[in-house]
């Protein structure tokens, strides 16, 4: 079974700093990591390969430095990887991104499962996974918390929704987007790191992929970012100190008064 994991390199959230005047993110000096939510997808894919054989291929679209994220995926246990990178891809929204990634998946071919993280922690859209399914005309099951069973033709999964879990049978090939509880990700091993060093990761651009130039990058994207700004920050925290009995009483009275004033109780 061939499993493809589309993934993204994102800035380490702990290190995100904002430029106070422009309201944009300061990317310089910020460590880039594998999107934490993609680690669950990678782990599930590796476990399925370990149980059933086959191979796991990681793909990622981004600038050339994204190669380090793909190497890390190989160090975790992916068999191979491909980098999707070209200036013409830059500035793509989720529509254009899912288009190019689906072209890379077509190039790899012969897949049974495509497993994505639920969303990336920087863009936060969760749209690329279902988008890939639409471009490839595959069935999709999102928010998967458990893969119960799988055979050549289908898999049974548990989909986390607002009021419980849907149990779904999904015909393969298919796209799954997974959430944290699907699998606890492993760390890269020393042997894995050595393998990653030796593994050649090809870079695919418009020449290697069957893509229409008018669908690429910022120009090919239906959406445009017109403004970026800082959200209204730091609420006026009304603070109480409740370190003794009298303090607790006073704090709770203050809180209840506040809540009543806002019509919240």
């Amino acid at each position: 079974m061939r499993i493809i994991v589309p993934m993204k390199q994102v800035p380490e959230t702990n290190a995100v700093r904002m430029d106070e005047t422009t309201g944009t993110m300061i990317r310089e000096g910020v460590e880039a990591i594998i999107n934490p939510l993609d680690l669950y997808a990678i782990e599930l894919a590796i476990r399925l390969r370990e149980a059933r054989g086959g191979e796991v291929v990681a793909v990622s679209m981004g600038p050339p430095k994204t190669i380090s994220a793909l190497k890390e995926a190989i160090a975790m246990g992916c068999d191979s990887a491909a980098l999707i990178s070209d200036r013409s891809f830059a500035g793509a929204d989720t529509w254009a991104t899912s288009y190019v990634i689906s072209a890379a998946i077509r190039r790899i071919g012969d897949y049974q499962l495509i497993i994505c993280g639920e969303r990336a922690t920087d863009g936060d859209t969760g749209q690329v996974g279902p988008g890939i399914a639409a471009w490839l005309d595959l069935p999709v099951a999102s928010y998967i918390g458990k893969l119960e069973s799988i055979d050549e033709k289908s898999c049974r999964v548990h989909r986390l929704v607002e009021d419980g879990y849907e149990i779904l049978d999904v015909a393969l090939p298919a796209v799954l987007t997974v959430v944290k509880e699907v699998a606890d990700p492993r760390l890269p091993t020393l042997r894995g790191k050595q393998k990653a060093k030796k593994t050649d990761v090809p870079t695919w651009g418009p020449r290697e992929l069957d893509v229409k130039p008018e669908y690429l990058g910022l120009e090919g994207s239906p959406t445009r970012v017109v403004k970026i700004f800082k959200p209204k920050v730091a609420r006026q925290c009304q603070k109480f100190t409740a370190t003794d009995e009298a303090g607790v009483k006073q704090a709770v009275e203050g809180l209840v008064k506040f809540l009543a004033g806002k019509d919240l109780i």
Binding site: V16, M18, T24, D122, D124, V225, V226, P231
Partner: peptide
Amino acid sequence: PAIGGNIMATIKTPRH
């Protein structure tokens, strides 16, 4: 909101 609520972005779809 994007980047964990650290920024707000205004987006439009001009031609589609």
